[in-house]
């Protein structure tokens, strides 16, 4: 009996120890998890040299930022691609299957269903809309006059930008890598940027190729592969160029940037980039004035931001991801 009792006590002690150890282990596990959860989680991967930290490039020196964002305007068009202003200062937004004319207060004036997807759009002084579809231009009027479709410019054509002034229509063709000058009947007048011009033509690795009309008889065309903005006379003679590549704020990043440009009344340039999504302002001579909006303002999946400058000098950016026209005001003395 005595033996049995001893045995019992021994086993009791053993089990008690086990239980105490279990409780202690549980408390330890708990404490360790708390510590582990809040420490650096990225362990067990390849070392530092394997990390390509794009986010470091995304940070912009706050001293360089000169843009202030205002209330955005809903774009209200499915997959918006193209932005322009008409003579009355209203927004023309072209999308996958329609063009909307939107007041700056966001009220939709008109909706024009489109037979083809709109890649770029421009408005004439009389309110006529010139829409660049993938391979041709369509002319639309809001007063009920039937639409006119110009013939295709070729099988490889990918129109990405359009500008209208006087009797001329310029369209940028990223697919054939040249700019077409047409008259208002759709007849081809001349071509800019053919490879035999001695300059090697435009380098356009992706469907982003923009042009904009300058104030004095000038046509500015982006050469994204060379990271440059080139000016031509309206007849097509090459004049000057500026811009360089680089991930720094002054340069244009990646393989093919800027994607879009717009020109302010004082001749300064607004540019937008993909990859490192940023909108910047340059002097007429091509020196950086500041960053209007850095990558933190946009969603990472943005590929190409169409730009327009309105009558008050505000920069309007078509954000295809948020389906908005983003509005930025520039706080800088531009008359240097």
């Amino acid at each position: 009996m005595d033996m049995n009792r001893k045995e019992q006590i021994r086993w009791g002690a053993i089990w008690l120890t086990v239980a105490v150890v279990a409780v202690a282990a549980g408390l330890l596990i708990r404490a360790r998890r708390q510590a582990a959860l809040t420490t650096d989680p990225r362990t067990g991967e390849l070392g530092g040299a394997f990390r390509l930290d794009v986010s470091a490039l995304n940070r912009i020196d706050p001293g360089l930022v000169i843009g202030a964002e205002k209330e955005p305007i809903p774009a209200l068009v499915e997959s918006p691609h193209a932005l322009a202003l008409d003579a009355a200062g209203r927004l023309i937004v072209g999308g996958e299957n329609e063009i909307a004319v939107i007041e700056t207060n966001g009220v939709v004036r008109t909706r024009l269903p489109m037979p083809f997807a709109v890649r770029c759009v421009a408005a004439d002084e009389d309110g006529t809309l010139y829409a660049g579809h993938v391979d041709h231009v369509g002319i639309y009027r809001t007063n009920g006059v039937p639409a006119v479709q110009w013939p295709s410019l070729g099988t490889n054509t990918v129109l990405t930008s359009i500008a209208v002034a006087g009797d001329n229509v310029w369209v940028a063709d990223a697919g054939q890598r040249r700019v077409w000058r047409l008259d208002k009947q759709g007849r081809v007048l001349s071509r800019i940027g053919d490879k035999d011009d001695g300059k090697g033509g435009f380098i356009i690795p992706s469907p982003h190729f923009d042009l904009a009309l300058g104030s004095v008889d000038e046509l500015w065309v982006v050469d994204p592969g060379r990271h440059m903005v080139i000016s031509f006379g309206r007849d097509g003679a090459r004049r000057s160029a500026w811009g360089r590549g680089g991930a720094d704020p002054e340069g244009f990043s990646g393989c093919c940037n800027p994607t879009d440009i717009a020109i302010r009344t004082d001749g300064s340039f607004v540019t937008s980039e993909k990859g490192l999504v940023r909108v910047k302002l340059y002097t007429p001579a091509g020196a950086l004035m500041g960053v209007v909006a850095g990558p933190d303002k946009f969603d990472a999946e943005v590929r190409g931001l169409d730009l327009v400058v309105d009558g008050q000098g505000r920069i309007l950016v078509l954000d295809p991801v948020r389906v908005q026209v983003r509005v930025f005001e520039v706080n800088v003395q531009t008359n240097k």
């Binding site: 794009v54 690795p205 680089g246 093919c256 990859g275």
Partner: peptide, 18 residues
């Protein structure tokens, strides 16, 4: 592929001479 001279996959992001 765009057959670029300056390639985002091939070059470091701060490459000056591609």
């Amino acid at each position: 592929c765009g057959y670029c001279n300056l390639c985002g996959g091939y070059h470091q992001p701060n490459t000056k001479t591609p």
